[in-house]
Design a protein around this nucleic acid. Structure first.
Lengths: 64, 64
DNA sequence: TCTTTGTGTAAAGTTTACTTAACATTTAAT
DNA sequence: ATTAAATGTTAAGTAAACTTTACACAAAGA
C-alpha cells in the first residue's frame, strides 16, 4: 500500500504531531504510516479520509 | 464499523467459505467480520471492495 | 551559538487482526 | 428422519497495528 499522506499533510501545513493529535494516535504512528512501515487500521483510514475530505481510495493505493 | 458483507455475499450466492477462499483468509475471519467481531485490515478491505466491485465506503460504514 | 521545532528510529509492551483446530447448531436437502 | 452443508463460536497461537519512552539529528530562528 502506498499513500499520499505526506503531500496532503504538507498542503495543510500540518506537522506529524498535528496530524497525530487530530487523529487521536501517536506521532510515531503517523510517521510509520507515512514511511510505509505499516498500514493504518480500517477505522484509522476512515478518520484520515474524513479529515482530509477525500475517499480512502484517493489517499491509499493498494498494490498487489 | 458496520458493513454490508452479508448482503453482498448473498447477492453473489457465495458461502462464507467461498468468500474466504476468494480473499485468501480463513472462513472464521469472514464470519467474524460479518458479525462485527472485528474490522478487516485496510489491505483486506481493499480486496473485499475490489472483489465486489464497490468502494470501501460503499461496503463499510464508519460509526463514531 | 544555542535553543526550539520537526522528523527519524528503536525497544518493549498492549491490543487487535488474523490463523488452525475443533465442535455445536441451524438450514436445507433427500 | 437422516444426512450434509453452512454458519456460529471458542481456545490458543502468531502477526501486525498500535502505545510510551527515549534519544539522535537536521533545519530554522533568536
Amino acid at each position: 500500500m502506498k499513500n499520499r499522506l505526506k503531500v496532503l499533510r504538507a498542503e495543510r501545513d500540518f506537522t506529524q504531531g498535528d496530524l497525530a493529535d487530530a487523529l487521536g494516535v501517536s506521532r510515531q504512528t503517523v510517521n510509520a504510516i507515512e514511511k510505509g512501515k505499516f498500514d493504518p487500521s480500517l477505522p484509522l483510514a476512515f478518520k484520515i479520509a474524513s479529515l482530509f475530505g477525500h475517499s480512502i481510495e484517493e489517499i491509499f493505493q493498494y498494490e498487489n
